[in-house]
Design a protein around this nucleic acid. Structure first.
Lengths: 150, 150
DNA sequence: TTGCTCCTCACGTCACGTGAGGTGGC
DNA sequence: TTGCTCCTCACGTCACGTGAGGTGGC
């Protein structure tokens, strides 16, 4: 609620891990394989520092990993596509591109989003089917409990 | 549609793998860790044979693995709980258990089902949230495409 | 100064992938 | 008899877990 202060406090790896529900080891591993920035300028042995933006990126990575069930390599491609879209938005606003280029940008963005949505919808349908089955079984058991004086 | 013939044709590991969308290696691995029966009576080097029941069990294993995102150890516990329920159903019908025992059986079954449903519902909510976000982004892009003569 | 968290190897584990080399059924 | 699928090691890989031993900031 307070206005953003001029300097954000830096976070340490343990803080980040606790906040997103993972381990320091996982964060270091994601840095190692290039999923997280990793601060190229950090001397070996020095402590890692993170910002709120890093926390959000990590949360997005973990969400895609858990919900879509894809490899970290694929997750990397998905978040890179996200950042490509962000870059394109900037190009859109700052460079005032030609109409043809505008259509290109939009078509590419739409392609990325549709591909992700296809993944999400397929899983969603499967999950709902499983939920329906389980609920039917539960109803059956409950009916029996009433019959037999639960 | 034809009546079940007296002898079902046995399936080989490649047939099973193709039908459920996995590999022979995975099936052998599941046998190794005890997720699939494995035919204790099979001499080493002999071909493995499977039935339709095995195909269904494997499909259920893969469904739980993919949709719930749990370890194979946990998947094993879930399918064992399923089989325990099947056994209890038999006890129910054949042994005509005492009312107290009946309540025990039902309470245990309900616990297992509720635990699975909790997992399924949490994932379902998260997936829906992701779907909603993606759909909002898609709408935004589509609106722009119309504005700029897509 | 004392804990606590952080650091870097480095080996272990889970869930398979991937050949190497060989045997058995349409 | 010729392919094709199957078999058993066994090493490789991905995504981390888990100490071992040491250094740095409230």
């Amino acid at each position: 609620m307070s206005p953003a202060s001029t300097t954000e406090p830096d976070l340490r790896i343990g803080d980040v891990a606790r906040r997103v529900g993972t381990t320091a080891r996982t964060i270091r591993y994601y840095e190692e394989i290039g999923l997280l920035p990793g601060g190229a300028g950090r001397p070996s042995g020095q402590h890692r520092v993170y910002t709120e933006a890093d926390v959000e990126r990590l949360q997005e990575i973990m969400r895609l990993r858990d919900l879509l069930g894809v490899s970290l390599d694929e997750v990397g491609r998905l978040v890179e596509a996200e950042e490509a879209r962000a870059l394109l938005r900037r190009e859109w606003h700052e460079d005032d591109p030609a109409p043809e280029r505008r259509r290109e940008i939009l078509a590419e963005a739409l392609g990325h989003i549709d591909a992700q949505l296809a993944l999400v919808h397929r899983r969603s349908v499967e999950l709902e089917a499983l939920a329906t089955e389980l609920e039917a079984r539960r109803s059956k058991v409950r009916r029996r409990m009433k019959e037999h004086g639960g």
